[in-house]
Write a protein that binds this DNA or RNA. Structure first.
Lengths: 194, 194
DNA sequence: CCTACCGATCGGTAGG
DNA sequence: CCTACCGATCGGTAGG
């Protein structure tokens, strides 16, 4: 049987284990044990361990871009685009922390074709930020030296949330999203009203 | 022979390989091959692969704190402390990129006593940032909602440099340090003169 | 989905 | 610093 349910069970187990022990530190036996089957049975759903990692990485990266595009619908002010992008970035990295940690940490373990796909998606994502920032600069709303560096400021800062954020901890996610959105506009020296 | 030279050769080879393929993806054979000896000979210098990773991680983390302390000598204005800290953080993460990537990526693979030591050093480092920021707030120089979050902004942003920075690339390291130092003061809403 | 099994490689040890 | 070797585990396959 090659049910979609089993496939996603394997995927979920793999994410947890890759996150905990890394791609090379996780055996097919480990994944199978969590799912409740034998290691050899995984090969009815995936051709290789590499394909499991590829599936996880491509899926989560595509989802990030999809949700980013969705959060910008109907927004025209570049300052609001930055706010929405930052909120989305932080929320995504907090709520899909294991997946983004794995896809960031194991990007070097990823081989083609997955590696090429994921790298291209990441370039697209950075490029979207760059274009929003440059649009704001042209409108005289932002003042920055380099739009690429400004993008790294914000993306790297928000990605860090996936490492230290704990649901139910000291910080409420909604509050965090607002703090980061405001911080982004400060980084860009955005003219008020923010 | 347990020469210090051999030990650091093993260390250097291990950093490159751990960075490239991860801790679990790297065998003692791989490290030995780079050094030009047999895998079993590494055990004349280290008791285990874990000890090699521990050595790398503790050393680089101690060095970060040492250089951070040194960059603050004679500085009293909190704004200048933030500038110096940010410049040091970025420069360190750019010039020791493989080491910090390994020590960040493999922190979960680290066992006690190394894990405990490294985690404590990291807490110390964060605490130093927090105290500088709170000092600036008390003096009315900074305006922020949460000093811990503000620390994460800056530390995470600067740590990102270790991932994308390439020496001899589009950005000069000195310029980058200044850009990040200025960005840090914007994040803190520092009062001029900056 | 299973059992049975492949050759390769793993970290580490014994002994010199 | 080496050779020789340990038991365990690796990703993956054959065959049902």
């Amino acid at each position: 049987m090659v049910s979609q349910k089993r496939r996603s069970e394997i995927c979920a187990a793999a994410v947890e284990l890759f996150d905990e022990r890394g791609y090379y530190g996780t055996g097919m036996e480990d994944i199978a044990k969590v799912v409740g089957i034998r290691a050899s049975s995984i090969y009815n759903h995936y051709n290789s361990k590499q394909q499991v990692l590829g599936d996880v990485s491509v899926q989560i990266t595509e989802q990030l871009l999809r949700e980013h595009a969705a959060c910008l619908v109907g927004v025209s002010d570049p300052r609001e685009k930055v706010r929405a992008s930052m909120r989305n970035h932080v929320r995504f990295h907090a709520t899909h922390a294991p997946q983004v940690r794995v896809s960031n940490r194991e990007v070097k373990a990823l081989q083609d074709p997955y590696a090429g796909i994921v790298r291209q998606l990441r370039r697209d994502y950075v490029q979207r930020w760059v274009q929003i920032i440059e649009e704001g600069c042209r409108q005289g709303l932002f003042t920055i030296a380099d739009s690429k560096i400004a993008t790294y400021y914000m993306v790297d800062m928000g990605t860090g949330v996936s490492v230290w954020f704990r649901p139910g901890g000291a910080y409420e996610l909604d509050d965090l999203c607002e703090l980061y959105a405001n911080a982004a506009l400060r980084l860009l020296r955005a003219v008020p009203p923010n």
